[in-house]
């Protein structure tokens, strides 16, 4: 009897369309997030994350429709993030059909937002998304970044994770900016360091390039593993990630 490690595909959505390339056969519309969500569901994904990278209001409105359409057709948990800045934003997304909401920059600007959202909706809806990178001279050796890893937020990553957990974050989506896009594997030092700091679930993200990369992330302390590119391009299927985890002794669904 034990909780399964969650395998979570992440979709970047811009104006209602999936951004990164897709390489699935049998997919009528490879840019349609709902179609892709169904494929991932059928492949055994334990959860889905939509990251809304729309710059416009129209784009965000369209994303809301996509969230609703997905929630009506795919019966696994759905997390939505990207530009979430207020309690009202969270309420709209939950009503649209999101189960959890990822907050990043807005919480750095105003940490009380974490407590406000947790008090209103419970801490289980709040995923704190942390873009962390190595930085000499910081207390832990890891700092928080903004703007896709290009700017320092002036926060120590471990201190921020601990503070967010205290304020009521239910989970941490830990994006390793140094590993992101390398496909060389997860940043195990970062995962281990955050694991020692917080007692809430950690979703490891950034660096997955092969099925063999998933078990070490779990061994380092991740409760869930997230990837985008390798799943979208079909380089690793969800089932292959789970096979690798199972072979390493992790419980999977």
């Amino acid at each position: 009897m034990s909780l399964a490690v969650r395998v979570i595909p992440c979709l970047d959505v811009d104006g209602g369309r999936v951004v990164k390339g897709i390489n699935f056969q049998d997919l009528r519309d490879a840019g349609d997030p709902v179609e892709l969500a169904k494929v991932y569901d059928a492949e055994g994904a334990d959860e889905l994350t939509f990251l809304d990278i729309s710059a416009s209001h129209e784009g965000r409105a369209t994303t809301m429709e996509i969230v609703s359409a997905t929630a009506e057709q795919v019966f696994i948990p759905l997390t939505v993030g990207g530009g979430v800045a207020s309690v009202a934003d969270v309420d709209r997304l939950l009503r649209a059909g999101a189960d959890k909401v990822a907050i990043n920059t807005a919480a750095i600007r105003r940490p009380e937002l974490i407590a406000e959202v947790a008090d209103r909706f419970g801490n289980q809806v709040l995923v704190l998304s942390v873009d962390a990178r190595r930085a000499a001279g910081t207390p832990s050796g890891f700092e928080v970044t903004t703007h896709g890893g290009r700017q320092s937020a002036g926060l120590d990553a471990l201190e921020w994770a601990a503070r967010a957990a205290e304020l009521g974050a239910g989970e941490i989506l830990l994006n390793a900016m140094d590993a992101d896009g390398t496909e060389d594997g997860f940043d195990l030092d970062l995962i281990g360091a955050v694991r020692r700091e917080v007692a809430i679930p950690i979703i490891a993200s950034g660096g997955a390039g092969a099925a063999a990369h998933f078990p070490p992330a779990v061994a380092a302390g991740a409760d869930a593993v997230l990837a985008a590119t390798i799943f979208h391009f079909g380089k690793v299927r969800v089932g292959e990630a789970k096979d690798a985890l199972r072979a390493a002794g992790a419980a999977v669904r």
């Binding site: 909780l3 490690v5 239910g170 809430i200 669904r253």
Partner: peptide
């Protein structure tokens, strides 16, 4: 680790109607 978040198995009691056919599911 709290919250308890994710897919878990359950210990289905004898005679359950709710879990009929679902005993090994998460």
């Amino acid at each position: 680790i709290v919250p308890h978040m994710g897919w878990n198995t359950v210990e289905v009691p004898e005679g359950s109607r709710a879990f009929a056919g679902l005993e090994d599911e998460r």
